[in-house]
Design a protein around this nucleic acid. Structure first.
Length: 582
DNA sequence: AGGCGGTACTG
DNA sequence: CAGTACC
DNA sequence: GCCT
């Protein structure tokens, strides 16, 4: 059918070095992940009943003063820990004073802040103050939050050797002090204290659950719910930081996506990816819906009181949330992440053309790295492309770059035939700052030019050297090209490019489908389904007859010239693309 | 206990 | 048909 | 794993 496949080459694929993605999981799936029945997950509602019932060791902290370094410890967790510390006889300092009349006993940092991050922060903020820093460290122990959790759990001061990073810091300070004697000390650019946590920063809300979303409209007829992303607060951290000036990055503490429950969301997202990569689609989906509910929840989640208000959070996920709130981490997730085969699964599944089945097969055959694949596995043509650009495909591009790519395609189209209309869909249309690929839709109002443009277009783009590889090209009801392009500019990366060409009268449904998010699309289709309709990229049909889920009668396609008309026909309030970014 | 979006490609 | 992809 |  389509000839330009040459590029794909038989020669060996350029080494794409194994790049590790975060997240992991556990390969012997059921073993640790699924098994629910045994060992019942710690009673959800209990806990937090510490209070009255424990007459004994109430003052484990015995007047000790604790300071929480706000960075990276989610506010919710900080509050909770602080409350507990006081409950158990400790004091909580508001700020960290270098001079220290009331000497601090413990300085608590988040478990995830990397050591070198802390060091860099100190370098930037205390280069005049080495002595005071050392004094401070003499009296106070800098410990990980996890240690504090442990103390609270066991109701005693436990050994902190693992959590205590005093010596490390002192050594570092001494080293810096020496170095400071010598004149050259450039003020490190230094990027904030949060390098480690969002393993991929651009937070991505991958989700939302159709139910909550759709039912919000239909039942309550109010969409408020969707808009009210609690975004605002979160400069609390920044403010506090300013004050304490400890570990403060001069440049910018301003955190990006501040959600009061970011910490919880992060961990659950890891679990979601894990399940999904393992092939447990629906469990992953359940997580996605739960996460969406949490993301919309405006207040810090401290316990069951808040959890009970969340839709799509059942007993299992609730218990995970409780665990995260109380201990700061999630055992199941940590376990999965430390599993080696699991890491390989993640590595493989992130390659284009590889899903859970193939990844599982490879892992089982003992492969663990991309190099293993290069040498030992017969790849499909698509997988070969995926491997060749493994690293590049993990990266996202700016909106600006999307626009440059689109510009080239548009110009080329115009040079062939005038009058086409274009729309960049996908995450770009939803307003994301960074986009993983380019989804360009185009059509022609004359009702026929859309049929013949794709092949010449792709041919020309190849000639220009703009397209570097093809995944596939089809001439179905909607003409589609999936491939790889690269801007001519020096240093440009290879990018995934999808071109979709529906007939003019199917434009709106196609745009809707290609605008996402995936969860939005699933939810609105589900909603249509429930109303006896059927929504696809091609049309919105009414009077659909299904028997046992099988469509028996296609129904009748509605005229839906605009996206608005689709919502209207479904009886839903219109949502702009950026409001579909769940 | 059953459902969880709807479609179309490759091999 | 199974597997993967697209949002 | 959650909902109906």
């Amino acid at each position: 059918m389509y000839t330009q496949r040459k590029l794909r080459t038989s020669k060996r694929i350029a080494p794409a070095e194994p790049k590790k993605k975060e997240q992991a999981e556990d390969t012997d799936e059921d073993a640790t992940l699924n098994h629910s029945p045994k060992k019942k997950p710690r009673e959800v509602p209990s806990k937090k009943t510490f209070d009255k019932s424990q007459p004994d060791d109430k003052d484990i902290f015995n007047g000790k003063t604790v300071y929480f370094v706000p960075v990276e410890i989610p506010q919710a967790r900080r509050n909770l820990l602080a409350r507990r510390v006081e409950e158990f006889g400790g004091k909580v300092a508001d700020e960290l004073h270098l001079g220290g009349k009331t000497p601090l006993d413990y300085i608590v940092v988040d478990d995830r802040v990397a050591l070198d991050t802390i060091c860099r922060a100190m370098d930037n903020n205390f280069h005049d103050n080495f002595e005071k820093m050392l004094q401070l460290l003499d009296k106070a122990s800098v410990v990980r939050a996890q240690w504090l959790s442990q103390c609270l759990l066991e109701r005693k001061i436990v050994d902190d050797s693992e959590a205590n990073i005093n010596e490390f810091l002192k050594n570092h300070i001494r080293a810096m002090a020496n170095k400071a004697d010598q004149p050259s000390r450039s003020p490190l650019p230094f990027s904030p204290l949060r390098d480690s946590s969002p393993s991929r920063d651009e937070s991505y809300h991958s989700d939302d659950d159709r139910k909550s979303y759709v039912s919000n409209f239909s039942d309550l007829g109010d969409m408020e719910d969707l808009h009210d992303v609690p975004g605002s607060q979160g400069d609390v951290d920044a403010a506090k930081l300013q004050k304490s000036n400890f570990f403060l990055s001069p440049a910018g503490g301003s955190r990006s996506g501040t959600n009061p429950n970011a910490h919880i969301i992060e961990q659950l997202e890891e679990m979601m990816k894990t399940y999904r990569n393992m092939g447990d689609e629906f469990r992953g989906y359940a997580y996605a819906r739960a996460i969406s509910a949490i993301r919309k929840f405006p207040d810090p989640i401290l316990g069951m009181e808040q959890i009970k208000q969340l839709k799509n959070v059942g007993p299992r996920i609730a218990s995970h949330i409780v665990e995260i709130v109380e201990t700061g981490h999630m055992e199941k997730k940590d376990g999965a992440e430390s599993n080696e085969a699991t890491k390989a699964m993640n590595l493989f599944v992130n390659m284009h053309g590889v899903g859970t089945k193939t990844a599982q097969k490879w892992v089982q055959m003992g492969y663990r790295t991309l190099d293993d694949l290069k040498e030992k596995v017969k790849l499909t043509p698509e997988q070969a492309v995926g491997l060749k650009y493994y690293d590049e495909f993990q990266e996202k591009m700016t909106r600006r770059e999307v626009e440059e790519i689109v510009r080239i395609v548009e110009d080329t189209v115009d040079s062939i035939r005038s009058g086409f209309i274009f729309k960049v869909c996908g995450s770009y249309l939803r307003g994301r700052e960074m986009c993983g690929d380019v989804d360009l839709l185009m059509t022609h109002s004359d009702g026929h030019s859309h049929n013949t443009i794709l092949k010449p277009l792709v041919g020309k783009l190849h000639e220009m050297g703009f397209l570097t590889d093809d995944l596939w090209l089809t001439e179905g009801r909607h003409k589609k090209y999936f491939g790889v392009c690269k801007l001519f500019k020096e240093g440009s990366k290879h990018r995934r490019l999808d071109i979709i060409i529906p007939p003019y009268n199917e434009w709106a449904t196609c745009v809707l489908g290609w605008s996402g998010s995936m969860y939005f699309v699933r939810s609105i289709r589900d909603y249509a389904h429930k109303k006896g309709m059927s929504l696809t990229d091609y049309s919105l049909n009414i009077n659909v007859v299904r028997v046992n889920g099988e469509k028996v009668n296609e129904g009748i396609p509605l005229e839906t010239p605009t996206e608005e008309s689709i919502f209207e026909a479904l009886g839903l309030p219109y949502l702009r693309p950026e409001e579909r970014d769940h």
